[in-house]
Design a protein around this nucleic acid. Structure first.
Length: 290
DNA sequence: TTCCAGGAATCAA
DNA sequence: TTGATTCATGGA
């Protein structure tokens, strides 16, 4: 059990930054660092159920960023109407601290796919290529996220069987680079964001947006601001309703306007736009939305 | 049916 | 540099 303050667990795990969480009853089940876990938030407490008692809980507390001071972060957001509305609508939404390979691989699958489809692809890949992990019988078979070497060794048709489409060759290319050490995801931690971004974008199929997702969701880089179709609409409609700046111009605007926690602000804008469009990742939490 | 989805590579101008 | 096209697949 962990204290939980100012933390919307359902929004955090369902807002489209991670793809392995499933809603079962009032609990969220997923696999983190090769461990199955069932999470349930009740008032000020978070209850975590695992299959095998771990030596410590850092793998979970770090992943969920349980020690982070949300109020301090929200206080750094720009005081404009858009961010005030987004903060009011999404309060409690958190960023996770994901494993780089799983994050990179997942977002390679994400291009022009809906979040629900990305989940299905990730699920298929884990079932087909992942090692089984311990889980209670009522949770069903559970699998770890496959190592890069597993995808690198797979034939492209095997990957396409998981509905990857044209992204299959992208995943294989990145998997090969990681498996062979050409791309060392651990050394990226010590690099400045632009240099780390450049390394990621060297992968075939990884552009600015996917690289920024990995930099933000896995490495916690607050100077990474992924601009997808939703965030693009947010920037156009909420900040430049009259003019029609180019995407490059909007990207530059994000580099200066959103402050030291710009990445966090980005996720609030993203989730706010989806809520407004009636695509609840979490708020009006129903089985259908998952 | 038609449109669109947490894009990126490619090619034309 | 910028703009259109193509790439799979399935939800809404």
């Amino acid at each position: 059990m962990f204290p939980l303050r100012d933390y919307d667990l359902a929004a955090t795990l369902g807002c489209g930054q991670a793809f392995r969480w499933a809603l079962r009853g009032n609990a969220l089940e997923g696999v983190v660092s090769g461990r199955w876990v069932r999470l349930r938030s009740e008032g000020p407490n978070l209850f975590a159920e695992v299959a095998e008692t771990p030596p410590d809980w850092h793998w979970l507390t770090a992943h969920l960023r349980l020690d982070e001071d949300l109020a301090g972060i929200l206080a750094t957001f720009p005081d404009d109407p858009a961010m005030r509305a987004a903060t009011a609508a999404c309060r409690g939404l958190r960023l996770l601290r994901q494993e780089p390979w799983e994050c990179l691989a997942s977002f390679i699958l994400s291009s022009t796919k809906q979040i629900v489809q990305i989940r299905q692809c990730v699920q298929s890949l884990c079932e087909r290529f992942g090692d089984p992990v311990a889980a209670p019988a009522d949770a069903g078979p559970q699998f770890a996220f496959p190592a890069a070497a597993r995808f690198a060794a797979a034939a492209e048709p095997e990957l396409r069987a998981c509905k990857l489409g044209f992204r299959a060759k992208y995943l294989r290319d990145a998997a090969r680079r990681v498996a062979e050490g050409e791309l060392d995801l651990e050394t990226l931690r010590g690099l400045p964001t632009p240099a780390a971004r450049e390394r990621l974008m060297a992968c075939f199929g990884v552009g600015r947006k996917i690289a920024d997702c990995v930099l933000l969701f896995a490495y916690g880089r607050q100077d990474a601001f992924p601009v997808d179709v939703w965030v693009l609409r947010a920037l156009q409609q909420l900040y430049f309703p009259k003019r029609r700046p180019s995407k490059a111009r909007l990207q530059r605007f994000t580099e200066t306007h959103f402050g030291p926690n710009a990445g966090y602000a980005q996720q609030y804008l993203f989730h706010y736009m989806r809520l407004a469009a009636g695509r609840p990742g979490a708020a009006a939490l129903t089985a259908r939305s998952w």
